[in-house]
């Protein structure tokens, strides 16, 4: 009962896609593998014949500015994301989320690609990328395509990416312009499973006292990473004060579908605490965007 039979270490995306297609049995890409290894070991994942290690592909481990976008390879270790000054400058919410994903040793292997591919609606990295309006680059037999971030998700644990055929190569983030800023925070429950009970990321652009543009992501606020589009629409063009915040929160509460997770948090509790978290995150991003 070996966890896998064959291990491939391709050095290009094309080779990796080819390896997926030509494997002698069920094949899966492995980036950090911190979750996959556990799933295989604990029998939560059907047996795999071939593992295709993506960490030897330079393109997928790159983190760089490309034109007016910041590119983060899907196999860049989360810890590198957390420490990278470019990410700090252009996507502070991602820095903050990356610093909170799992623990330090796991962050040295875990990747954003893995965080996203698991398609959990409240994963820290996912929620930050949702608010930052990331675009994913996906490679398959038919070539490459760019996908809006939220289109990667079909439901809890259900990705739009067919992992046996396709690979998330990396993520593109818009670089920050003056008066744009972001922030990520979360609330934990110390006992029980590792996921936070609620997290929130905000990206916004200020125009003096007015909100020029804003993205709000809350996890878990639905079956897929939730964007509070109603609240965003209301806040655009408004001045940011207690009154507008209260209304935006109402919009969010109307739109979000908070659920009860057994032994983690009830929907009621999430509804009760989301306002405080959102306020905290918004206030911080607002100040940063001054």
């Amino acid at each position: 009962m070996n966890l896998w039979q064959e291990y491939k270490s391709p050095t290009s995306v094309a080779e990796a896609v080819q390896d997926l297609a030509s494997a002698a049995g069920p094949a899966l890409p492995i980036a950090g593998g911190t979750d996959l290894m556990l799933d295989l070991r604990q029998g939560n994942h059907p047996p795999v014949h071939t593992l295709i290690d993506l960490t030897f592909i330079p393109e997928m481990s790159a983190l760089e500015l490309r034109g007016d976008e910041l590119y983060v390879g899907a196999a860049v270790p989360v810890n590198q994301v957390a420490l990278d000054p470019l990410v700090g400058t252009h996507a502070q919410a991602l820095t903050e989320a990356a610093n909170l994903i799992a623990g330090p040793q796991v962050r040295n292997t875990a990747t954003l690609g893995g965080n996203v591919a698991h398609a959990l609606p409240a994963a820290d990295g996912t929620i930050a990328l949702t608010a930052l309006d990331a675009v994913a680059e996906v490679a398959g037999a038919a070539g490459r395509r760019r996908m809006p971030f939220t289109s990667l998700f079909l439901g809890p644990g259900k990705s739009a990416i067919d992992k046996t055929k396709e690979i998330i190569v990396g993520f593109y983030l818009p670089i920050a312009r003056p008066h744009q800023a972001s922030c990520f925070k979360r609330i934990m429950r110390p006992q029980g499973v590792a996921l936070p009970i609620l997290n929130c990321a905000v990206w916004l652009e200020r125009d003096g006292d007015l909100v020029r543009d804003i993205h709000i992501a809350v996890g878990p606020g639905g079956a897929t990473p939730f964007r509070a589009t109603e609240a965003e629409a209301f806040l655009r063009g408004q001045s940011f004060n207690d009154e507008t915040f209260a209304h935006a929160l109402d919009c969010l509460l109307d739109q979000a579908k908070f659920r009860t997770s057994a032994r983690r948090a009830s929907a009621d509790y999430r509804r009760h605490i989301v306002g405080g978290l959102l306020k905290d995150v918004l206030d911080t991003a607002w100040k940063r965007a001054e």
């Binding site: 270490s9 492995i30 270790p77 040295n108």
Partner: peptide, 15 residues
């Protein structure tokens, strides 16, 4: 691993 602390229990040897 290359100076970084890693959990070797989930680190494929081939890597």
């Amino acid at each position: 691993v290359d100076g970084q602390p890693m959990m070797s229990c989930v680190y494929p040897a081939e890597r």
